[in-house]
Write a protein that binds this DNA or RNA. Structure first.
Length: 371
DNA sequence: AACTACCTCAACCGCTTATAG
DNA sequence: TCTATAAGCGGTTGAGGTAGT
C-alpha cells in the first residue's frame, strides 16, 4: 500500500502559513466547504498539500476555536480526563469543545505534565510516587486487572463511538451541498470542529447506560447543567439519544432551539439541528448490537436483565475500583468492599481525585458552553 | 548589549483506520 | 477479498520568543 507523497510533491510549500494563504483557505471553505482535502489546495489556489490545509483549518482557522490561556477548570478537566483516557487527545478534546486536540496536547506536554511531576505525580499513571511504591508490592493484581479491563472496555467504546461519528460526518458531508445554497458558510458545520455539538461523550453514554436517561434530558442533576439551556447534556452529546426513547428527541430539539438564539452562526445551527431532529445519533442496531454498548463486564453490575441496573451505586463502585488499585482495597463482586488495608489520608486523597474525574464527566463542566 | 538556554506551539511526519472500487 | 486512497490521530520537530547570565 503505497503512501501518498503528500508534501513531498515538488512545488508544494511547507512551513508557516502566511495571512494570504489563510485568506485563500478561509474563503474557499466558506464558499464550498472543504470537501475532499486532497483536492482542495488546487481548487483554492494553494501550493499546499491537503493534509496541511486540513491541519491549518482544524487547528487554527476554524471559527469556533477558543484560543488563549486555559482556564483553571479546563486544566482540571484535561488532567482528569487524561487520567481516565490517557493520551487520547481527540477524545479529551471532545470534552473541551472549543479546544483542539493539538492545543490540548501541547498544553499538556508543556505545562500540565511538568506541573504534575513537580507535585510528585506520575503524569502517565496519575499516581503519586508513594502509590507507585505501594503498587510494586504486587498484592493488587486483581484490582489492577479490573482497572485494566475497564480501560479496555472504555477503549472499545471510544472506537465504536468514533465509527458512529465518522458515519454521521459522512452523511453530513453529503447533505452539505444541499444546505450550501442556503447558508453563506458551512465550514464549521462540515468539519464539526472538535465535535462541538457532536461531542462523543462516551463517558456519559456509559453513565446513561447504567443510570437511565432521565438524568440526561432536562434533569441535569449534577454539575453545571443547571439551566438545561445550552448545556451539553441536551445539546451536543450524540450518545444522549442512543438509548433514550424517541420522545426525548423533541426535548433535545427544544433545548437546542433555545440555545440557537445565542448562536451567531445560523447555518451552523441549522445544520446540526437537522441532525438532532433527524435522529442522526440513533443507534443502528446492526452496527451497535446492544451487547456492545450495554454489556460491560463490570463488577457489581447485574448483567442478567435487559435493563442493566447496577446493584449499588455505579459511581461508588467505580471509585472504589479505581481507589482500590492504590489502597489495596478488595473489590467484591456484589459491589461491597472489604479488607481495607491501607488508605488513610492517602486513600481519601485518591478517592477524591477519582471522584472528581467522575464528577467531571457526569456534570459537564462549564468548559462546555456551546458558543 | 550579547550570548545562551529554555520554552512554546504551529506544523509536519508517519502510522493506523475507514472506505471506495 | 484485495488494493489504493483519504482522513484521523498521536508523536515529534524546529522556528521564534523569552528569561537568565
Amino acid at each position: 500500500m503505497g503512501r501518498s507523497p503528500c508534501c513531498d510533491k515538488i512545488g508544494l510549500k511547507k512551513g508557516p502559513w502566511t495571512p494570504e494563504e489563510d485568506q485563500k483557505l478561509l474563503a474557499y471553505i466558506d464558499q464550498h466547504g472543504h470537501g475532499s482535502w486532497r483536492a482542495l489546495p488546487t481548487k483554492a489556489g494553494l501550493q499546499r498539500c491537503g493534509k496541511s490545509c486540513r491541519l491549518r483549518w482544524t487547528n487554527y482557522l476554524r471559527p469556533d476555536i477558543k484560543r488563549g490561556k486555559f482556564s483553571l477548570q479546563e486544566e482540571q478537566s484535561i488532567i482528569q480526563l487524561h487520567a481516565l483516557l490517557g493520551n487520547r487527545w481527540s477524545a479529551i478534546a471532545t470534552h473541551l469543545p472549543k479546544r483542539t486536540d493539538n492545543e490540548i496536547k501541547n498544553y499538556w506536554n508543556t505545562h500540565l505534565k511538568k506541573r504534575l511531576v513537580k507535585m510528585g505525580i506520575d503524569p502517565v499513571t496519575h499516581k503519586t510516587k508513594n502509590d507507585a511504591l505501594l503498587s510494586s508490592d504486587g498484592g493488587q493484581s486483581k484490582n489492577t486487572a479490573n482497572l485494566s479491563h475497564m480501560a479496555q472496555w472504555e477503549s472499545a467504546r471510544l472506537e465504536a463511538e468514533s465509527r458512529l461519528a465518522r458515519q454521521s460526518k459522512l452523511r453530513s458531508a453529503i447533505s452539505f451541498q444541499a444546505r450550501n445554497s442556503e447558508f453563506a458558510s458551512t465550514s464549521s458545520q462540515n468539519q464539526n470542529p472538535g465535535g462541538t455539538l457532536r461531542c462523543l461523550d462516551v463517558l456519559k453514554a456509559w453513565k446513561g447506560d447504567f443510570w437511565g436517561k432521565d438524568r440526561e434530558v432536562g434533569g441535569g442533576s449534577g454539575g453545571n447543567s443547571t439551566t438545561g439551556i445550552g448545556g451539553r447534556d441536551q445539546l451536543e452529546s450524540p450518545t444522549s439519544t442512543l438509548s433514550s426513547s424517541a420522545g426525548t428527541g423533541q426535548q433535545h430539539s427544544a433545548a437546542f432551539m433555545e440555545s440557537l438564539r445565542n448562536c451567531s452562526e445560523s447555518y451552523y445551527a441549522a445544520g446540526i439541528m437537522k441532525e438532532e431532529t433527524g435522529e442522526e445519533w440513533k443507534l443502528n442496531p446492526a452496527q451497535f448490537p446492544s451487547s456492545e454498548l450495554q454489556d460491560p463486564p463490570f463488577p457489581g453490575m447485574d448483567h442478567s436483565a435487559d435493563q442493566r441496573v447496577p446493584r449499588g451505586s455505579f459511581v461508588e463502585n467505580f471509585t472504589n475500583l479505581l481507589l482500590s488499585t492504590s489502597s489495596d482495597r478488595r473489590f467484591s463482586d456484589d459491589g461491597g468492599d472489604s479488607d481495607m488495608n491501607g488508605g488513610g489520608d492517602y486513600g481519601e486523597e485518591n478517592k477524591n481525585y477519582w471522584n472528581s474525574i467522575l464528577h467531571l464527566v457526569n456534570s459537564s463542566p462549564s468548559v462546555s458552553p456551546m458558543f
